[in-house]
């Protein structure tokens, strides 16, 4: 692919990511926030595609956009928060925040510019052919060379679920309706339907 085309695609996706990120924090309606986050994820998936990480890009869309953000949207909609009542201190802290933002952006431009990470220092990585399989490469290292961090990440997920359950589960309260599968399976038709035999009514003459 032509380098220029690639650059245009990169800046389009990168700009979209930054813009969507700004919208996430700037809009008042939480539903719009979530939708803007979806845009940010899709745009970053585009960036990953440029890096030839097709599998990760697709996973980002499937998992984050498809599952996580949908769940987020459900939660936000269920909580029924139309608009946040007010943004306390937004104006008050704005100058400080803008200053910090400007300082960090200036530092980043100064440090991560082409003079340090330009083509002179780092050559363009070679493009892979059409027969290159992203998933294959991942699969080769994930359970072999990277097995230790992989297991640690699994431990992290286990901790997350234990923590979430222990913080939110408050024991079965009186009056909570819940399913009892064993009783559901053991039920007989006689428990549910009562067949009443009754004489048919005589015809009423008009």
């Amino acid at each position: 692919m032509d380098l220029l085309v690639e650059q245009i695609i990169f800046f389009a996706f990168a700009g979209m990511t930054v813009l969507a990120g700004a919208v996430v924090v700037a809009v008042r309606n939480p539903v719009h926030s979530v939708l803007a986050l979806v845009v940010a994820f899709v745009a970053s998936a585009g960036l990953w595609l440029l890096l030839e990480a097709e599998f990760l890009a697709l996973v980002l869309i499937f998992v984050y956009v498809g599952a996580v953000m949908t769940l987020f949207l459900f939660v936000v909609m269920m909580l029924n928060i139309r608009e946040l009542p007010s943004r306390e201190g937004f104006v008050r802290f704005l100058p400080l925040a803008l200053f910090a933002l400007a300082a960090i952006v200036a530092m980043m431009v100064f440090v991560i510019g082409p003079q340090h990470f330009g083509l002179a220092q780092y050559a363009i990585p070679a493009h892979h052919g059409a027969d290159y399989s992203n998933i294959r490469e991942l699969g080769l290292v994930l359970y072999t060379h990277d097995v230790y961090p992989f297991e640690l990440a699994a431990v992290l997920l286990l901790i997350a679920i234990i923590a979430a359950i222990s913080l939110s589960f408050r024991g079965r309260r009186v009056g909570t309706r819940s399913q009892v599968p064993s009783a559901q399976i053991a039920v007989k038709s006689a428990d549910r339907i009562r067949i009443i035999k009754m004489a048919s009514e005589p015809k009423v003459k008009r």
Partner: peptide
């Protein structure tokens, strides 16, 4: 980094 997170996450909870 993973060790750090495995340490911190339970502490938050």
């Amino acid at each position: 980094y993973l060790g750090l997170e495995v340490l911190s996450l339970p502490l938050y909870a």
